[in-house]
């Protein structure tokens, strides 16, 4: 497995910005929920009201701690998120503490979907979703040209290795 990691390609560096933004958006949503809980505390009274405040506090604290951790770990996440393609299969590797290696033979690929939201478009990245007959796997983001090439490559190879469903 280590041998392949050497050959494997990392995602573009700008994906780290995307991940960070996503984490912050997640934190923002958590804080809004905490704010709503705090508002309920503000509007009500009694012992139950105190619990609303406590849960708001716990939620906000948890959100901040988890986000700080994931933000610190994003460098690692990028370092250990790699993909590798040859004429037989697509391989995705990710994770440091929990390592995952996914092998998808190109002959089993049904279609490739490219997806781009506003944040990805801002960084000129595209999400690549590789779909098989039994599920799909995602490459979080590649540069637009790179993603297009990948799609063409996979689909050309897939046509060569045509399979029956």
């Amino acid at each position: 497995m280590t041998a392949q990691i050497d050959k494997a390609t990392k995602l573009p560096k700008s994906i780290k910005v995307i991940w960070r933004i996503k984490e912050l958006i997640g934190l923002g949503i958590t804080l809004i929920i905490a704010g709503v809980l705090e508002f309920i505390h503000f509007m009500t009274s009694g012992t139950a009201s105190l619990w609303w405040q406590r849960s708001a506090l716990i939620l906000a604290l948890l959100g901040v701690v988890v986000t700080i951790f994931t933000l610190i770990l994003i460098e690692y996440r990028w370092n250990f998120w790699t993909y590798y393609i040859d004429d037989r299969q697509v391989e995705l590797h990710n994770g440091y503490f929990f390592r995952k290696q996914i092998v998808i033979p190109i002959a089993r690929v049904q279609n490739v979907t490219l997806k781009q939201g506003p944040i990805l478009r801002w960084k000129a990245l595209q999400k690549v979703i590789i779909v098989t007959a039994a599920g799909s796997d995602v490459i979080d983001g590649l540069q637009t040209a790179q993603a297009d090439n990948l799609k063409v490559l996979i689909m050309t190879l897939a046509r060569e290795a045509k399979n029956d469903i």
Binding site: F98, R99, Q101, P105, G135
Partner: peptide, 16 residues
């Protein structure tokens, strides 16, 4: 083999 659509191998830093 040709009916396996994809394969996933998992390990952790502690299992390795």
């Amino acid at each position: 083999k040709n009916k396996i659509q994809s394969l996933e191998r998992q390990e952790s830093i502690w299992l390795q």
